[in-house]
Amino acid sequence: MKAELSPRTRTALYGLMCVLLIPFVFPTWWMVTSSIKPISDIFAFPPQLIPQSYDWTTYSKVFELQPFVRQYWNSAYIAALVTVGTMVVSSMAGYAFARIRFPYANTIFMIVLLGLLIPSEVTIVPLFQMFLKAGMVNTHWPLILVPIFGAPSVFATFVMRQFFVTLPAELEEAARVDGLGRFKIFAKIALPLAKPALASVAIFTFLHSWNLFLEPIVFLSSAEMFTLPQALTQYTDAYGGPMWNIQLAAATLTALPVLIVFVIAQKQFVEGLAHTGLKG
């Protein structure tokens, strides 16, 4: 694309990128290292970039002060359910909007797209009242049902539709001639070919659910029911001040697994999300 870079420009570019990297990479490093420093060292001056002594008891406190395993499980199973549920709902709806001719399809599609325009924050008050009436406050139902069927899944439906639109019509026609009905065409032809789109839907849906914060603090009130983002903020002392080392340890436990999966599958992550955004 461009002329070959001279060695000098090359060095300058590497230097610039390394400086720019600091705010992206350093916080994660600081989180992990501070979480294993003794409490006396975490605000030490000069700052210890590499811990000089270790205190692993912080990690046991994470589990003593709160039902952290339970909270971890809450976040994990909710995110898993929401991800799978969204994949099912959005791939079906996206397929129908892209490939099936039915009356009022365009009008219905516009109505569904309204979900993109209405942030879930707008509807949080009535949603709370609705789930309150249904006796589902302080249960996980709101955190599961709303993302799968409501506004958050609309973007996934849109992504799936954009993918299915590009599927050659002749493939489906061949399948019809081969004896498949609509449901089988969807399950055996369209869906297996939609793996890349499904992967990006899975990634951003998972991250969205994993990071959900407003909804849990609105809907959940007991520590047993909390999800991770909410739980992290609960490690406070008697005066409401954060217990930094324990918070950081819990944050590390929350962040690291996803980071590790990302490093292993970073190509799928980056390309999956780029793919989505280009089309969305």
Partner: peptide, 20 residues
Amino acid sequence: LDPKDRDIAMVFQSYALYPH
């Protein structure tokens, strides 16, 4: 009748082979 019930087979311009 649906295509599948007509007992016909078709060869498409793009071949329409299932890629997977």
